[in-house]
């Protein structure tokens, strides 16, 4: 394994975050604060509790997941798309580095950034509501598994995209709606039976449910199923990336 090259990509990508600190960190934190004001204070004041947990505290895992998914996808997709767009990808392709190492560098950086922002949001949430983490190890495990999986998805999107429009398409049309409909702000048990069944087909439900369980030990689906879902998604993404690099799709002619 060429760790020196992986480190170079990782450091270079992380440097981008520090160059654009306002948009990288401040912007998601500000959005989360707004969610707290709207959902936590304005709407939450009319909801006593969900599954025995105060509404403000209940939505914290969902809010963290929302940001984690958006940031993982956005960071990883931009990380690989930008060199393609400006042409500096030539350097990656001509370097003595394998595709596995390229992925580790880019996805590692994207997942690190997303996880760091998620932790900042967790800390920020603590200013608004009292948070209790029942299973910190599982919380971190879900956080990391989700960050890596969706960074891999972002990497795939970045390879696939031929324009900035396409780069935005999947996060806007798919990720955000799936998170909103995946129980970020409510429990699936609050829905009518028919919608409860429909929600089961939303993969993000399993992520949010597992993540919320690690906080409050309440879940829409068994935690084992959540864990299997995130691992399954991770495996699918790894498989797709393996295929992309084996065929050189959209990278090498």
């Amino acid at each position: 394994m060429n760790w020196q090259s992986i480190r170079a990509i990782f450091v270079f990508e992380m440097a981008r975050t520090f160059r654009t600190l306002t948009q990288s960190v401040l912007s998601p934190v500000l959005s989360t604060v707004l969610y707290f004001i709207v959902f936590g204070a304005a709407i939450g004041s009319r909801i006593q509790s969900v599954d025995g947990i105060g509404y403000g505290a209940f939505i914290v895992p969902g809010l963290i997941m929302l940001t984690l998914l958006q940031q993982s996808v956005a960071n990883a997709s931009f990380g690989i798309y930008f060199p393609k767009f400006i042409g500096t990808i030539y350097e990656i392709l001509s370097a003595p580095i394998s595709f596995v190492e390229v992925v580790i560098g880019y996805v590692g950086a994207a997942a690190t950034k997303a996880t760091a922002i998620a932790l900042i949001i967790l800390a920020t949430s603590g200013l608004f509501v009292e948070i209790h983490i029942a299973h910190p190890v599982w919380m971190v495990a879900f956080l990391l598994l989700t960050a890596v999986s969706f960074s891999l998805l972002g990497f795939i999107i970045g390879i696939w995209a031929k324009s900035f429009e396409q780069l935005q398409l999947i996060p806007m049309l798919l990720i955000t709606p799936l998170v909103f409909l995946g129980g970020a702000f409510y429990s699936a048990s609050m829905l009518p039976p028919i919608w409860q069944t429909v929600t089961r087909f939303n993969p993000v439900l399993y992520l949010i449910s597992g993540f919320r369980w690690s906080f409050y030990e309440v879940a829409d689906v068994p935690v084992g199923v959540s864990l299997m879902a995130v691992c399954g998604f991770l495996a699918v993404c790894i498989g797709v990336i393996w295929l992309i690099f084996k065929t050189g799709w959209r990278i090498k002619q």
Binding site: A8, A15, I92
Partner: peptide, 23 residues
Amino acid sequence: EITIEPFERVINTTRFSRGLFGK
């Protein structure tokens, strides 16, 4: 073609290339 990371500094972009090649 002149393909270069526009927002990075000259010395960092040069260091990056060295690291990328495993040095």
